[in-house]
Computed example of a mutant assay.
Amino acid sequence: MKATKALQDKVALITGGSSGIGLATAKRFVDEGAFVFLTGRREPELLAAANELGPSAIAIRTDSSLISDVEKILARIRETKGKLDILFANAGIGEFLPLGVITEEHFDKIFSTNVKGIVFLVQKALPLMPSGSSIVLNASIASIKGMPAFSIYSASKAALRSFARSWTTDLRRQQIRVNAVSPGVISTPGYDGLGLSKQEMETFLKTNAETIPLGRVGTPDEVAKAVVFLSSDESSYISGIELFVDGGLAQI
Rank of each mutant, 00 (worst) to 15 (best):
Ile73Asp: 00
Pro55Leu: 09
Val36His: 01
Asp9Gly: 11
Ala34Trp: 07
Ala75Leu: 05
Gly100Ile: 13
Thr80His: 09
Thr80Asn: 05
Leu13Met: 09
Leu23His: 03
Asn90Phe: 10
Glu43Met: 02
Ala89Asn: 03
Lys81Asp: 09
Ala59Lys: 13
Ile14Lys: 02
Phe88Glu: 02
Leu99Lys: 01
Val11Lys: 03
Thr113Leu: 14
Arg42Gly: 10
Val36Ala: 01
Phe96Met: 13
Leu84Gly: 01
Ser68Gln: 15
Gly100Leu: 06
Leu13Lys: 02
Lys72Thr: 10
Ala50Leu: 09
Lys27Gln: 12
Glu71Lys: 06
Ala50Gln: 13
Ala24Gly: 04
Ser112Cys: 03
Asp63Ser: 07
Thr62Met: 02
Ile14Tyr: 12
Gly82Met: 14
Ile102Gly: 11
Arg42Met: 07
Glu104Arg: 08
Ser64Pro: 00
Gly54Thr: 05
Thr113Met: 09
Asn51Lys: 14
Asn90Cys: 12
Ile21Glu: 04
Gly82Lys: 11
Ser65Val: 04
Leu46Gln: 04
Ala75Val: 09
Phe35Ile: 14
Leu7Glu: 06
Arg61Asp: 00
Gly17Val: 10
Thr62Cys: 11
Asp108Phe: 12
Asp31Ile: 12
Lys27Glu: 14
Val30Ala: 10
Gly16Met: 03
Gly33Ser: 08
Arg42Asp: 15
Phe37Val: 09
Phe96Arg: 01
Glu79Gln: 12
Leu97Lys: 08
Thr4Pro: 00
Lys27Ala: 05
Leu66Met: 14
Ile73His: 04
Arg28Leu: 12
Ala26Cys: 05
Ala57Pro: 01
Val70Trp: 00
Ala75Cys: 06
Ile86Ala: 08
Lys81Tyr: 06
Ser112His: 13
Asp31Ser: 13
Asn114Val: 07
Ala89Gly: 00
